[in-house]
């Protein structure tokens, strides 16, 4: 499969967002699949598709995360751990595309490549249907598919949103 990253300057930073999860249970991103955390497989998928810059945002750093990063980070496939919105704004310019992926969402290679190759900002939407009930609601008629393309400007504006 051809690399999605044809020009380094315009290639998006992929942001894997690990949310809070359910107390007492491992976050789905750290659920073991084929002997490795799901996040490991997501990073391998991004590497396979030719993505060069990835950031993983977490509220607290689980013990498995630094190990995964140590295993996969290399020249040409750079992984950063982010703790706060400010960490993200420090990483990108206003015009830098940022592809946001919820870390509990699995998506096939072809869909992911199609979205990464798109230019311009977008938020993916699923219609309100019973099979989509696990996805977060956007409004009464639609839910978020866990994938979006934004830019550094949105990230900067989001960093000043108050907690709560």
């Amino acid at each position: 499969m051809a690399s999605i990253v044809e020009q380094e300057a315009s290639s998006p930073l992929v942001l894997l967002c690990v949310g809070g999860g359910v107390e007492g249970a491992p976050h789905p991103a750290f659920q073991s699949m084929l002997g490795k955390p799901f996040l490991f497989h997501q990073l391998k998928q991004l590497e396979r598709l030719g993505v060069s810059k990835v950031a993983v945002s977490v509220e607290s750093v689980p013990p498995a995360l630094p190990t995964i990063v140590e295993q996969l980070d290399r020249p040409g496939f750079n992984i950063r751990i982010l703790r706060t919105p400010a960490d993200l704004t420090a990483l990108v310019t206003d015009s830098q595309p940022v592809f946001v992926k919820s870390a509990d969402v699995q998506v096939s290679d072809d869909i992911l490549v199609g979205l990464l190759q798109r230019t311009g900002r977008f938020v993916t939407r699923l219609p309100e249907q019973p099979e989509h009930s696990a996805f977060e609601r956007i409004d009464l008629a639609s839910r978020w598919a866990g994938l979006a393309m934004i830019d550094g400007m949105i990230a900067r504006q989001a960093s000043v949103i108050p907690e709560g």
């Binding site: 949310g19 946001v100 978020w144 979006a148 934004i150 949105i154 504006q157 989001a158």
Partner: peptide, 14 residues
């Protein structure tokens, strides 16, 4: 609020 939701909210507002 997680960073993902902050970004989603800001993207929708923008």
């Amino acid at each position: 609020m997680s960073l993902g939701f902050r970004l989603l909210r800001q993207a929708l507002q923008s």
